[in-house]
Design a protein around this nucleic acid. Structure first.
Lengths: 119, 119
DNA sequence: CAGGATCCCAACCGATACTG
DNA sequence: CAGTATCGGTTGGGATCCTG
């Protein structure tokens, strides 16, 4: 709790774990329960399959999400939050609340509402 | 507070604001009060001047730190937390506490204790 | 369906030298 | 002292095609 502990870079490590472009959204979608890869992909438009996979792998490596491979054909893989992942949710909520109170001037959008505007 | 709000990417925006490699450390050092550029630079070894400046500019653009230019020679510029920056501190503390409780297995170090070890 | 392989571009970070 | 300019390496994200 000592503020000096920030020097230990724990903040860096933690934000690094959720700093991926799609990671917060992934964690959100996984929060209600396990989800198949394709479902996750459909739920999060605008991500390439490769990147979605990468982010999942990283979340997995960081112990935030788990992967369950059902031995079926066609393949079926489920992703879900781990205990640690679940424990991170309140932290994300704190961040979200701070943003709501401090970033009223920002363009905050829902990813799936975004169409190909600029370029 | 509705968890669905995560879809608005407020979390993304916020973590983006502190995701820079040195940003948490910068915010920490500025927390006690205004600090000159050179002092900040000396306090945070291992950053190039260019990058430190970049990160400060970004924090400034995000409204987290302010810049005061004293008209002297040689030049003297002070950086400090803005109201918004100060309001972010508790959020960082929450992150830090989560890390302390959930990442005991990680190598967490103090930046200034790191010497040129590997390579 | 899950995911690997390629290729590509942009952003991030760093080192060094220079200027007012 | 504070800041630019330049260059180079590494990572992140994306598009597209291919396979078990």
């Amino acid at each position: 709790m000592n503020y000096k502990d920030f020097e230990r870079c724990a903040v860096n490590v933690t934000v690094g774990m959720i700093a991926g472009k799609w990671k917060p959204v992934i964690l959100q979608h996984l929060e209600p329960g396990e989800m198949r890869f394709v479902a996750l992909w459909r739920a999060i438009p605008r991500v390439s399959k490769k990147v979605l996979l990468e982010q999942l792998r990283q979340l997995e490596a960081d112990g935030l999400v788990g992967r369950r491979e059902h031995q079926t054909f066609p393949p079926e893989v489920g992703y879900c939050l781990t205990e640690r992942g679940v424990s991170l949710i309140p932290v994300l909520q704190v961040i979200d609340r701070w943003a709501a109170q401090n970033l009223p001037d920002r363009v905050v959008y829902r990813p799936h509402e975004v169409s190909e505007v600029s370029n």
